[in-house]
């Protein structure tokens, strides 16, 4: 089982490598990747440094070029793919069909991963990407139950990667336009969900309010942890009831499912969080490395250690965790 960790900066990449990531994924400093945030990501020199650091230690670097090329920017996306091939990136993570065709034609030796933004939830979809472009790995949207993942893995030769820990998209990735509805920018078009430039915080007599594009997302009472206003994680009113109508602010944590994921034939676990600090990346990577090593040493006796659980819980959004769709109550 490979451990795939995020890096939004060179220090985060080093933290991931030093703490046991097998692969580190990152993006360029523009809207070609789905974590297009100010002050984040890599320029060409930074990418070279990242590759040198990781390759010297026998680890891989994956470049996410996983937004959808817009009509006026095709060249920017193909340059990102060309750059990956020229600089020796180990694989590119792509979502767009046209860009995948470009990569497969122009750089036949470049390894292709299908991004979660490609919204492929079945083997029929994944096998189509395999037939058309020789895709070698697919990252599954966070919507399938374990049983469904098992069915899928059995019917494809494409390696399957799943999300293990971090921020949780409750919507099918690549199938959510909530952010552009409110702000004009979505993950598909601009590489950003609920962008920081659209966020406003305001103290009011009713409490601390968070707004996105002017829309009230949440109102926090004294002592409540005020989470970032990701718009699907707000408190809304439905039929007279005010609650987290779509999803609570919580992190996905599937550590306890690790043996099941391995048994299903999942080949890699992905940690979300390219926008997170190097310290966060170091801590999460360390815990997951220890867990994967423990699983490899003795799968039958695998158990989540209380220390791992404590550490991950401390790092979780709203300090709460969920098993997401892997777990039955969603179904």
């Amino acid at each position: 089982m490979e451990l795939v960790c995020p890096a939004g900066s060179l220090p985060a990449l080093k933290a991931a490598v030093d703490n046991g990531a097998d692969c580190v994924y990152l993006g360029l400093r523009d809207d070609t990747n789905a974590r297009n945030f100010a002050g984040l990501n890599f320029d060409v020199a930074g990418l070279d440094q990242a590759l040198a650091y990781a390759h010297a230690r026998g680890r891989k670097v994956l470049l996410a070029v996983n937004t959808y090329p817009q009509p006026d920017g095709w060249g920017k996306w193909t340059r990102a793919v060309d750059l990956a091939a020229e600089r020796g990136v180990d694989a590119v993570i792509l979502a767009d069909l046209g860009l995948m065709e470009y990569a497969a034609t122009r750089h036949p030796d470049l390894r292709l991963h299908l991004s979660v933004q490609g919204s492929a939830t079945t083997y029929e979809a994944i096998n189509l990407y395999r037939r058309l472009f020789g895709v070698q790995r697919a990252v599954l949207p966070r919507v399938l139950a374990l049983r469904q993942i098992e069915e899928l893995v059995a019917r494809t030769e494409v390696e399957i990667e799943v999300f293990g820990f971090g921020g949780l998209c409750v919507m099918v990735e690549g199938r959510c336009q909530l952010s552009s509805y409110v702000t004009g920018e979505s993950p598909n078009t601009a590489g950003a969900c609920s962008p920081a430039r659209a966020v406003r915080w305001e103290e009011t007599p009713g409490g601390l309010e968070s707004r996105l594009g002017g829309v009230l997302i949440n109102r926090f009472g004294a002592g409540e942890h005020a989470a970032y206003p990701t718009l699907c994680k707000g408190r809304f009113e439905v039929a007279g009831e005010l609650y987290y109508a779509i999803e609570e602010p919580a992190s996905l944590n599937t550590l306890e499912l690790l043996p099941e994921l391995a048994r299903c034939g999942v080949r890699a676990v992905k940690i979300e969080g390219r926008q997170r600090s190097p310290a966060y990346v170091a801590q999460v990577t360390r815990v997951w490395r220890a867990a994967i090593d423990a699983l490899a040493a003795n799968a039958a006796r695998f158990a989540v250690k209380p220390g791992w659980d404590t550490e991950l819980r401390r790092l979780s959004e709203g300090r709460s965790q969920t098993l997401g769709a892997y777990h039955r109550p969603w179904k």
Partner: peptide
């Protein structure tokens, strides 16, 4: 969904629906 494209590709003409992510002419081609 791309599953449907996979099932229909090369077999029958189809409509590429609004939930496929098509944002450029290369993908459309």
């Amino acid at each position: 969904d791309m599953s449907a494209v996979g099932v229909l590709a090369g077999r029958a003409a189809f409509v590429a629906g609004p939930h496929l992510n098509v944002y450029n002419a290369r993908t459309l081609a």
